[in-house]
Amino acid sequence: MLRILPSGPRAFLVEVENDSQVLSLLNEVANRATTSWIKHVVDIVPGERTVLFDGVADLNAAQADVQSWQLQVGQAGPGMTVEVECRYDGPDLDRVAELWQMSSEDVVNYHSRLLHRVVFCGFAPGFAYIRSLDENHMVPRRASPRPNVAAGSVGLARSYTGIYPRPSPGGWQLIGRSDTRIWDEKREPPALLTPGTRVTFIPI
């Protein structure tokens, strides 16, 4: 069920039940991108369970239109696919293997064969929350965050995989590292991983 909340004179926020519905909502937006109000929207910002529409000329018409959408749970458009090479040698790999009750090698095989999809971005420029894990493979954040996590580190938290675009503090369980440049201000767009993008992790 969609819940629509006002968010300023030209914006509104759509709340959904889960991140799968966020992807479904973004798919609807893509399918309707040429309709009268969507093509003039200034910005569309997805979150874990929300999508913000900003710069909407006719709020009443737009909100009524969105309220009528029938979302198919988990349905998302094809999107582009980005391959990310990953050395699965992170300091928390054995911890994740223990949580999942499998070997470290099995963790690598499992994670690299999953269907990964970016739901939203945040925390730091270029940091993508990549939906990866099912309910049986949820991973808790570390009890004590590390004061410094190296750029390119690949970590798990809850149902998400993340790749640190730059050195920063972080509390995710680190299972590997990648040399793929996730954020580049000279690139357009600077972020390699944007909402809706499919991600394939290639063990090296």
Rank of each mutant, 00 (worst) to 15 (best):
E185T: 14
D54Q: 14
W37R: 05
N148T: 06
E15V: 11
W172A: 00
G122E: 07
F120Y: 07
Y88S: 02
R198G: 06
L133I: 12
D89W: 06
T197A: 10
D43P: 04
C86S: 06
V41G: 02
P203L: 07
W100Q: 05
L133V: 12
A151N: 03
V139Q: 02
L59S: 07
L156A: 03
G170Y: 02
V41R: 03
Y164T: 04
N109V: 12
L52G: 10
H137Y: 05
G155M: 06
L59F: 11
L5A: 14
F120Q: 06
D58I: 15
V14G: 01
S168D: 01
L93N: 00
G55M: 12
S103H: 08
T81V: 10
Q67P: 05
D58K: 14
Q72M: 11
A57Y: 11
V14Y: 00
V107H: 07
R198Q: 15
A128D: 09
P169W: 02
W69Q: 09
L99P: 03
V16K: 05
L2E: 00
T81P: 03
T200K: 14
W37P: 03
S24Q: 01
E185D: 12
V22E: 02
V66L: 09
D19E: 15
V82N: 04
W172P: 00
Q72I: 10
E135A: 12
I182R: 02
P189Q: 07
V107Q: 06
T200V: 15
G74Y: 09
I204T: 11
L13R: 08
A128N: 03
D89M: 09
G162I: 08
D134S: 08
D58Q: 15
R3T: 14
F120E: 01
G176R: 00
G8K: 09
F127I: 10
N109H: 15
L71E: 04
L193D: 08
Q173A: 07
L2I: 15
Q173P: 01
V42G: 10
Q72F: 03
P6E: 10
L192R: 03
S153P: 06
L133S: 04
P195L: 07
S159Y: 04
I202S: 07
W172D: 00
A61P: 05
N18W: 01
E105G: 05
L2F: 10
A151G: 12
C86N: 00
E185K: 14
G171V: 08
Y164F: 13
R158Y: 05
L174K: 08
C86Q: 00
I38Y: 07
G77K: 02
P189S: 08
Y110C: 12
P140I: 06
H40G: 11
F120I: 10
T161H: 01
L93I: 09
K186D: 12
E98I: 11
P91E: 15
P169M: 07
V154S: 04
L59I: 14
R146I: 04
E48Y: 05
A62S: 09
F12R: 01
E17P: 05
D43E: 15
I44S: 06
V41K: 00
L23W: 00
E98R: 13
F53S: 07
V96S: 02
P147N: 10
V119R: 01
L26K: 04
Q75C: 07
T50I: 11
